[in-house]
Write a protein that binds this DNA or RNA. Sequence first.
DNA 1: AACGTTTTCTTAACCGGTAAAGTCCCTATC
DNA 2: GATAGGGACTTTACCGGTTAAGAAAACGTT
Lengths: 345, 345
Amino acid sequence: MTAQPASRVTIKDVAARAGVSKGAVSLAFNHKPGLSEATRERIFQAARELGWAPNLTARTLAGSRVDVVGLTICRPARLLGLEPFYMEFISGVESVLIEHSCSLLLRLTRSVEEEVGLHEAWWRGRQIGGAILVDFRQDDPRAASVERLGMPVVAVGHPSLTGGLTSVWTDDATAVTEAVRYLAALGHRRIARVGGAAALGHTVARGTAFDEAARALALAGAWQVTTDYSGEAGARATRSLLTAPPDDRPTAIVYDNDIMAVAGLSVAAEMGLRVPADVSLLAWDDSQLCRLTHPTLSAMSHDVHGFGADAARTLFGVITGEGPGSHPVPTPVLTPRGSTAPPSP
Amino acid sequence: MTAQPASRVTIKDVAARAGVSKGAVSLAFNHKPGLSEATRERIFQAARELGWAPNLTARTLAGSRVDVVGLTICRPARLLGLEPFYMEFISGVESVLIEHSCSLLLRLTRSVEEEVGLHEAWWRGRQIGGAILVDFRQDDPRAASVERLGMPVVAVGHPSLTGGLTSVWTDDATAVTEAVRYLAALGHRRIARVGGAAALGHTVARGTAFDEAARALALAGAWQVTTDYSGEAGARATRSLLTAPPDDRPTAIVYDNDIMAVAGLSVAAEMGLRVPADVSLLAWDDSQLCRLTHPTLSAMSHDVHGFGADAARTLFGVITGEGPGSHPVPTPVLTPRGSTAPPSP
DNA sequence: AACGTTTTCTTAACCGGTAAAGTCCCTATC
DNA sequence: GATAGGGACTTTACCGGTTAAGAAAACGTT
């Protein structure tokens, strides 16, 4: 890429116009002391007239801040397109970055290893000032890598997975427990869970919590399946769960995202089962989608936008050395809609 | 942001280790002539041993390439989260960028003006080597702005909107016509279209094409509504279309995205209308979602991933001065599923 | 052997900023 | 009236690369 910007106003031009040195302009634009109000104003005036803004590349190279935050996501492209989660998360991140005139460097990767390599390259190349790490799995290599690099990051995931990195996370265990308790309170004794990707740490956490809740409530039946988060997988899982004889199949199913819940809804209809009379469905990551189906989907609602914003804010905290440190974001809350009800006797 | 990378291997270290000058290292790493095979190999060896890679910031500043492409999207954050389109488009873009070891700088903006300003800042600050422009509206200020800056871009939108910029686009008019013809062929004489944001150029294009097709086929009724692409808006629009007396309401509805079509499906159910017996529905931007509903949604399928990839490839073409130039991508094709059928008599 | 060419590599000047150290001048202090 | 102390700027040395111009060695030619 070798195309050249047409106009090239540099700090030198501004300095000349304001009748000062480059250094003075730099001081003014970084709001540092050592300039009279008059000169300061004169400099800004000159910059305005020339339409100049500091070149971020040069600024970065010269060793001050880096106004870019990295985000790498490692999931198959097709799934990303469908899952509302990430776009919403990103938009939350952006809403905070924008306040710091910071940009987001995004890359979809194929593997965690690629991600590690990329972070290293970005960091050493001073392309980014920090990063947001998502989708932690067990024994994730990223914690160690980041530690070694000394790069400021915020890890999105439970502290048990993120190896001491500053983290923000949702309390999935509590949320799963609440979901199961709610269904049990409605009278369900046979409950299934259609989980996400088995490799992901929070899938494991939810699985464990589900098992514990099932045991604590002495449920008559508790199934768990892991999927790849796709609607197809959700449909397959639902179909296989519901093909058992009526007395031996779940009367309620919890899904790890809303796409799979929508798929489940459709499978139930296709199998001639009424929702919620014959089977109750409960989605996760409540998006607009849950209000568009018929019946509407009960869901564990979660402010994903706010989650992203919180992650970004926390990252800035890490970079400046202040800030809140690790903390959970509000636990998803149950939003009952039309897809859950007591099981028919 | 002032954190410092822990290790700092620079070109100087590599040069010292290989026993050559900085310049020689630079030549080697840019595959330029003027070095013997032996030295070249010695330099690469040294770099490998030290784990060095050129600092992109410095490289950019020194005036060669810029390995970042900008993408700004101006839509309300909430909608972005839901629309599968963008994430899928982005993943397509990435798939091409990655081959050029290029990254994507993403920013969600609030207005087109903000977008223009951002592009200018990015370009003049040499943050990006080019940009992908999306969501063109009529009399879009971006064409002029980009022209003035001399920044390489690819515009995603019909040439009638993009003011002479190199463009890639889908032939919406043809697709709309095909959709209407298909429904007419099934026997529908009263057809409605629930469109996207009125400000967007392609919404206008589709609207015009719809009107023309309706006239050409001498339909008995043709309605059009514009929305904000949200499911709620889709539901509202559908509800208002279907409340008319049976003989005076559309028997088929075309939607501008799949979210609204899903919402429409749900509204039909809520109003006690059977799909497709009482009303046929046709979605746009076919995503997985269309296969998850019950009945499944007929849609105008479109390879969004490939669209993104094509846009990125075209951008590289613009930057290098070669490449294909403006061209349409394959027109969306009709994929009939369960939501369209002849109207019941 | 002298001389023009290449090939191979070095030097040094940028790119557009930042930041530490230095200069200059004005004022307060004893 | 000499000196110390600041405030207001300027100088200058980087940051980590690229690149044009220069120099030294190797080569071919007559």
